[in-house]
Design a protein around this nucleic acid. Sequence first.
RNA 1: GUGGGCAUAGCUCAGUUGGUUAGAGCGCCAGGUUGUGGCCCUGGAGGCCGUGGGUUCGACUCCCACUGUUCACCCCA
Length: 416
Amino acid sequence: MIKMIVRPKGTNDILPQDIWRWHKLEAMVHEQCACFGFKEIRTPIFEETGLFQRGIGEATDIVEKEMYTFEDKGGRSLSLRPEGTASVVRAYIENNLAGASLPVKLYYLGPMFRYERPQSGRYRQFHQFGVECFGTLEPTLDAEVIMLANELYHKLGAKNVVLKLNSIGCPDCRTKYIAKLQEELKKEHDKLCPNCQRRSTTNPLRVLDCKEEMCQATITSLPKIKDYLCPECSDHYEKLKHILQIWEIPYIEEPRLVRGFDYYTKTVFEFSVESLGAQNAVGGGGRYDKLVEEIGGPATPAVGFAMGIERTLLSVGETWEKAPDLDVYIVTIGDEAREEALLQLIKARKKGLKAEMDILGRSVKAQFKQAGKSGARFCLILGSDELKEGKIKLKNMQSGEETQLPKDDWLGGVNK
RNA sequence: GUGGGCAUAGCUCAGUUGGUUAGAGCGCCAGGUUGUGGCCCUGGAGGCCGUGGGUUCGACUCCCACUGUUCACCCCA
């Protein structure tokens, strides 16, 4: 027996019965971005491995163990993109997009790849929508990105979305803070969970994010980064919060919020929903003022955001109502009606109507049943009786009401 | 990479201390109605019980391995 080949672990087929959710979300994304003056960019799905090593950080989990890295026939090391920012930054530099007027506001939409154990809301191939803007330190830009995301979640119908906000400072103040943090963590070492004991050295900021009961008291007593921000970072953070207030965007200050990429500076934020279980972050982002430079471009401050599409759909998709697939289903009665039905079918489709007819030669009852299932708004009934007089019947499937019309003049009855 | 749960019809799930012919609901198809969907009634199709091994007279049921899947940890969208 031939072994059945199935889809790779952590990937999904998006089936015809579900694709409308994706189309709907994508349409809203394009509309929202147009509204905020963002232009779409499409970059390759794989890049030179070094781009991600430099951009995301050599020591992050993503680069260390989650990348799909392979060698091509020319001996180049390439990797499937695990996130979108590095590629967009590369494209921004390579194509000299800075040549246009600043700020440059871009967005992207597409698959990302990370080799992880799949679980609810986490897949090896998943999709992100993201925005990146380049060219100014102004906190208004941070706020604009947050505004775009926040409004999009609301338009999508997300309930109980919470915006968490923090500033992790620039390399200067953060370095000082981490040193202080590690000093304190060393003192409290015995009171921490095994994970945090390890994190104290590998990734001290992550300790702040620990959910273990036994760590909570210690975490609360640890120094807050807020108290270590340099005047510039502190001022930036205050101005950002002020703008968010002007725009009436609710947020929660979350001094413990840290994010997984090394490139963030100053502002970091995250959107989460309660209903999703452990993987409850539906999007996040922040400012990255050093990244463009690190990748080899001119020093350029920037802000970005990325939304997990699967997670977002999980949290909102069920509440959406599907638009009908069909405007009209043509029911034929008797063989002589079929030829006329073929003519009417193509006439309807040429007018842009979504139209179908039975091609399996089923009974009248079965045809109506099919029409009902398809959600067709109307049935066009072609029977030998009607056709003798050059008429057809149009049945409204919701009300059940039938009207008789001349056979070449029924399209008007299907008012959109 | 670590730990737990699960695997029976298209879907959701029953299946007794191991016993011969594996069930239900929903869905699908047909008929009841030779020209009318949704409700109702009747009938039908559809299963290597995840794969491989073991125990047994006998395994969907017990044991082992593998695979898949799922949840959680790590980390992240």
